[in-house]
Design a protein around this nucleic acid. Structure first.
Lengths: 160, 160
DNA sequence: CTGAAATATTTTAAACTTGAAATTTCATAC
DNA sequence: GTATGAAATTTCAAGTTTAAAATATTTCAG
């Protein structure tokens, strides 16, 4: 029968996990910080706005509010506000759905697609630069590591 | 002379980096979500408050506001508000510094240490559970991968 | 000493974020 | 048909977050 690891060893593993999580959190925050800077400085916008546009850019037919919030892992109310502002800026429109009067479909406008393309270039440049030292093996190793995190596969967003 | 990779190949690498970043971001958000849930449900507090307490718990002599915000990778003004609420709750105190009338040192109170210890147990349990499938090699691989990200070593916070 | 630059912090306005409650519409069991 | 619960969204209050401006203090060149 498989014996549980000795207490000592288990605590050490626990500590390592915690330390890794902190490192992951800091790393993520730093990348986000750099992205935020570019968005503000070069594109006069914010990261949350960019995230919404990026999600919509992959969907010609648009997305329902609830699909948006699910994919972005943010609350419904949150999306309401951001989309409101994007509508105000003319980057996005809300289209009523015939079958369901409760729901709305949010879609990029032509201007929205245009503006997003520029932002995306800036965004990609930042990521490209920050990740430039990661070769294919390292990328694989990281993706694989993330894949082993528990429970995180609970919700499948349908992304390839 | 080393030849640059062909355009095709470079674009593919770019795409993989982007995809990995998105995955990393989503993973981080999900872990944060689970942590937030525990903090709210079991400890009637928030993640930012926990983060501040956790940072202070490692420093018996306390930290200056600026040190706190630097370590947490958040703005100064942000820390002001959170510390305010923690002071109000009696978990933290602000001690004037003799040499420098501009600065304040923030320190946990006895109650703060006590309360934090409970929170930390809940926090550790979540991480332990989510990361339970990661063995030492995977932990190494991830830590190594994060270490290869550019520019992220700019600021050294002195943490081992 | 004096003033300019640097440092530590707070304040402010705007935006973002959450979780819960409220609203409206849909689906369906009876 | 009707109620009853589920679903989609908005509203709301509280809190978090940022970036920039304001304040106060320190440092240091001259």
């Amino acid at each position: 029968m498989a014996q549980a690891a000795p207490r000592r060893r288990r605590d050490a593993l626990s500590k390592r996990r915690l330390r890794l999580w902190l490192r992951m959190l800091r790393t993520t925050k730093r990348v986000e910080g750099d992205l935020r800077d570019v968005m503000r400085t070069d594109h006069a916008t914010t990261l949350p706005r960019f995230d919404v546009l990026a999600t919509l850019d992959r969907e010609d037919k648009g997305l329902k509010m609830s699909e948006l919030s699910r994919r972005l892992l943010v609350s419904n109310g949150n999306v309401t506000g951001i989309v409101e502002r994007l509508v105000h800026d003319g980057l996005v429109v809300r289209v009523p759905i015939d079958d369901d009067k409760r729901a709305m479909r949010v879609r990029l406008t032509a201007k929205g697609r245009e503006v997003f393309a520029e932002m995306a270039a800036g965004h990609e440049a930042v990521i490209d630069s920050l990740f430039s030292d990661l070769d294919h093996e390292t990328l694989d190793a990281l993706a694989d590591g993330f894949g082993r995190l528990k429970d995180l596969r609970r919700i499948d967003d349908g992304t390839r």
